[in-house]
Design a binder for these strands. Structure first.
Lengths: 208, 208
DNA sequence: CCCCTAACTGAACGTTCGTTCGGTAGTATC
DNA sequence: GATACTACCGAACGAACGTTCAGTTAGGGG
């Protein structure tokens, strides 16, 4: 019928080196020119293969974007859940929020290209892919908003208008992927630490 | 020779109603589908005119983007310079920074579609247009960074790593254009005020 | 040695793209 | 009432687009 091992579908369990290479080139193209500004010919040329070779591994151009976006969003959520799990029961919600910010910022520096595409190409996703990614992103937001709500309950955070504060924290951290460049004046760890401090200051940690 | 009054060129001094209508439709299309995801046929269809009618007013698709982006960036800079001019000599750099944040956030709510395109379609600009817009954006950044530097000098602001703090303030305010929707739970004025408070808290206003 | 399959290739398919062109209705000017 | 100019229109142009397809190569069983 169709391709024997359905190579385009088998993403979770087996991703061949060729598939990863194509995905990496596609990512670079999407970062530089955007999804709609990138042609399959661009990707094939930069990958040093033919257009048909890409179609052997992926069923469509949209599938390239889906693979990139679902992976980066799933990984981001996993990183945040790991950060939350790493917080002991002794520590308060301010420590939790700082850990979330640190993990989030580190992710956006270490995987800035994927994160950048993940944030800028939402509107290029097909409807069903978008639904999935949005659901994941909602869980990401919930991590931050829950931590803030908990901190207000505990009295370790203090801010009027937690909605705006949460948005401010998340968006300023997301934007790190827009300006960060490897080899810049600060390391990812330094930036993460500084952003955690900024976030805590903005949320009124250690005030009352 | 060419079109008599060079209508496509005359942007600053005279913009006809037709030109503005096309520009508005193009803006909506760019917001929803991106520059490369929008075709001239999309714009013509939504504007209720022909493709050729657009080409009568603008020399190319790129000119539509240029017109939108240069205008919004110039206006943003003007708004910030006005905000700075509105600060009396009695007031300190913290008040200046708060005024900048308020003006910047208000701009990004009231003109969120233009601001959104202005931030997301930089890479779709032609090289020479990009140079112009980047120069304007540098002046915008300088407004914030100068205010922060002045505040540190005066001792009314206190933060280690002003570079990251400045980036954090600007990016969180820029992102307002991504999530704000008219008719949301808070008015532009409220959001602007809250963001000014958040920025001052992040920059350690009134600490030492 | 033959066959099967994975992993491609080159050439095309039909469609859509940005752009151009010849023509025209309406209005103002002389 | 001829001329000029503005503001368009429908139809077409060549190029580029995403995608497909028949064919080919390399390598491992049987």
């Amino acid at each position: 019928m169709n391709a024997p091992a359905r190579p385009g579908r088998a993403r979770a369990e087996s991703a061949s080196a060729s598939q990863e290479a194509v995905l990496l080139v596609a990512l670079n193209c999407f970062v530089e020119q955007g999804f709609h500004g990138t042609s399959m010919r661009d990707i094939a040329a930069r990958a040093g293969t033919s257009i048909a070779a890409i179609y052997y591994h992926f069923p469509s151009k949209a599938a390239l974007l889906r693979a990139i976006m679902t992976r980066v969003t799933e990984d981001l959520l996993a990183v945040l859940e790991q950060a939350r799990a790493g917080i002991g029961r002794r520590e308060d919600a301010a420590a939790l929020l700082a850990a979330l910010v640190r993990a989030y910022v580190r992710f956006h520096t270490e995987r800035r290209e994927e994160a950048f595409v993940g944030n800028s190409e939402l509107r290029s996703l097909q409807a069903d892919d978008l639904t999935h990614v949005i659901a994941l992103r909602d869980k990401v937001s919930a991590q931050f908003n829950d931590a803030i709500a908990l901190g207000l309950e505990q009295g370790v955070l203090a801010c009027d208008h937690p909605r705006e504060a949460g948005l401010a924290v998340m968006t300023m951290c997301t934007a790190v992927a827009n300006w960060y460049r490897p080899g810049g004046p600060a390391t990812p760890e330094q930036i993460a630490e500084r952003y955690a401090t900024l976030a805590l200051a903005m949320l009124g940690a250690g005030k009352s």
